[in-house]
Amino acid sequence: MPLDRNSIARRAARELRDGMYVNLGIGMPTLVANHIPDDMTVWLQSENGLLGMGRFPYDDEVDPDLINAGKQTVTGVAGHSFFDSATSFSMIRGGHIDLAILGAMEIAQQGDIANWMIPGKLVKGMGGAMDLVAGVKKVIVMMDHTNKKGDPKFIPECTLPLTGKNCIDMLITDLCVMQFDKDRKRFVLTELAPDVTLEELQAKTTAEFEVAGELQTITA
């Protein structure tokens, strides 16, 4: 059975480590924040200038001067800090952020990502996504394995304008987990969602990938 959004987020949260500095992209990746273990310190960075992002505010705590990169009102945890946008992207581009978890429209088999523009249709802009994939130590993409029409999103070459080339380290979808092998320049399938078969995955994938010797079932 394919994973629901919360289960994908729960699986992604297993990549978190105590003390990590992490940037979560807008949309599905923000759900990962709900699955940070209580005994773990994870510093969430919001690229508009906040390190140590906390929960959404109670009604009487709402402050228009305190928002996240999705323009939502937020709070800070103990030890949070504010800074300007150049400092924020020094953290990102300079390789100081340990992990970024992003959504994607398309992922190509050699680790390219497209997630910012559909020519003639969607003109919103890349925001900080290009900086994140270029500079963060580890980049995980979480997405549905196919689009709303059922077409594969993990494909040989991106058809949409790229956000970055050869920059994805790990792919977590509703069907599987893949790790990018930098030497072989290929994704390696390591986990399948419960009751999802390799044949079903291959039928919904046009990208080439390798299969690990021991396939695990995703336990979320």
Binding site: E47, D84, S85, A86, S88, F89, I92, R93, V123, G125, M126, G127, G128, A129, M130, D131, G135
Partner: peptide
């Protein structure tokens, strides 16, 4: 007319 500029690049271009 529109020129898209990545957010970190925009901040650094101003700086």
């Amino acid at each position: 007319e529109l020129e898209f500029c990545p957010q970190g690049t925009l901040a650094e271009r101003m700086r």
